Every structure is written in C-alpha cells, then in structure tokens.
Computed example of a mutant assay.
Amino acid sequence: MRRGANPRRRARGGPRMNRKYPVMLDLRGRACVVVGGGAVALRKVEGLLECTESVRVVSPSIHPGLAALVQAGRVEYLARAYAPGDLRGVFLVVAATDDPDTNEAVWQEAEALGVLVNTVDDPPRCSFYVPAVVRRGALTLAISTDGKNCALAAALRRELEERFGPEYGPLLDLLGELRDRIRREERDPSRRKALAERLATAGLDRLVACEGLPAARRRAEELVAQRGATA
C-alpha cells in the first residue's frame, strides 16, 4: 500500500468496522504539530508535552499560556498561518483553529502524507481521537466515546479520578519492581502468573492510601516469601 493511502475509505464490512483500535503512542523523539493558537490549542499542547518534547505550534497569534511555553523554550513557534508543507516529517498533528478551511487543509495534507491527525470537534476528519485521561504515575486510564459525547467522557473521568487515587502511582512502581524480581526467581510461568494476580488483588492500594508505601511493601514481601515457603 502506498504511503498516505487511506484504507478506511476502501474498507468493507459490518458495524465492527467502525470500531476504533485503542493504542498507547510513544511520542518520544517524534515531531508533533498543533495548528492553532487559542485556548483549545493550549490544552492540546499541554497534553502532548506530557509525552514528548518535540511540539511545534503554527498560528499567527497565540494564547498567553502558549506564549509562556514558547518563552520557556518548551515549544517551537511559527508565527504565521498554516501553509502546505508544514506537515513534512511530522508524526502527528492537531488541527485546532476556528477556521474550517484551515482545518480542512490540515486534514487533507495529513491524509496525503500518512500523518496521524486530530481535527478538534470534527470526528470525520480525525484518524485518531484524544480520550479523557486519568494518570496515576505509570497507570493511565482512558475513556473514549468515539467523539459522540465528550461531556460523558469527562463525567466518567471524574468518577475514575475518585476511584483511583494517587496511591496507584507508587503502588504500580512497587508491583513492577516485584514483577521483575519474581521473573528472575520463579521459573514456573503458572506460579508467576498466580503470584502476580495475588499481589494485584491483595488490597495493597488501600495499604498505600491508609498506611503508606512501606506498609504495602512489607505485605507484598510477605506474599512473595509465602510463595517461596510453599514451593
């Protein structure tokens, strides 16, 4: 298939063909562009900066928040309107202007070059959607409504923020550390899996929240030691 071809336009099938494939993109070292300079563009830039240091803004004028990021050297800024060719060598672009013609031009160039594109509030001109996100350290929870109702996604995000508190960040770091240790020490895959599931469901999150990470670590170490005693 030639670069830039759009297989979605040739796809055939039932309702399942309309489903989106959820992925987690590694944007480190990949060029990302936001076309637009308003409050919406600022939010998109802030989200991208959580994942990459390579963000460029293209707009004749920019929001004070964006100006501060430019001043701090965190964002590259082209102080002009979008022009064809701005997406060469780009991995991902967000079209966030209030001009439908500009957004359409960005979409067309992105499609031609095979660049991932999100056009704000215009689902048909998106090759990806940006979900509502809850982050707790390495834990990421994402909610998408396929662009049908962002308010519902935001409401669900607030529920998840209450359900999954800040304790999940250090807890996940602890579980990752123990996983590496168990993989080194336990040769039996089924026993490794059983212990990982036991650690994940042992209420360690409540221990972190109520008594702190050291208490959760002690309990986790006990569970790992019990595995050794019964081997």
Rank of each mutant, 00 (worst) to 15 (best):
G73V: 02
G36T: 04
A154L: 09
R80L: 00
V120D: 02
R9G: 09
R157A: 00
P123K: 01
V94N: 10
R30M: 07
A153E: 06
F128Y: 15
N103G: 04
G38N: 06
R227W: 06
R135Q: 09
L113V: 10
G169V: 11
C150G: 15
D98C: 14
M24K: 11
I182S: 05
L92H: 04
M1G: 15
T52K: 00
D180Q: 12
Q71G: 14
L160P: 01
A5M: 15
F128T: 13
R198E: 12
L25I: 02
L87K: 00
V208Y: 01
D86G: 06
A95N: 10
R88I: 13
L152P: 00
V40D: 03
S190N: 11
P189G: 02
G169N: 09
V94I: 13
E111L: 15
S59M: 11
V57Q: 09
R19T: 14
N18S: 14
C126K: 05
R179W: 05
E53I: 12
L69W: 06
V33K: 08
S190R: 12
P124A: 06
S190I: 10
R218M: 00
L78F: 12
D173C: 03
V120W: 03
P100D: 10
V120M: 07
G169C: 09
V208K: 04
R157D: 07
A72V: 04
E211W: 00
D101C: 14
E197V: 14
E76G: 09
E167S: 08
G47L: 07
I182N: 08
G228Y: 13
T52R: 04
V120N: 01
A194Y: 08
D98R: 14
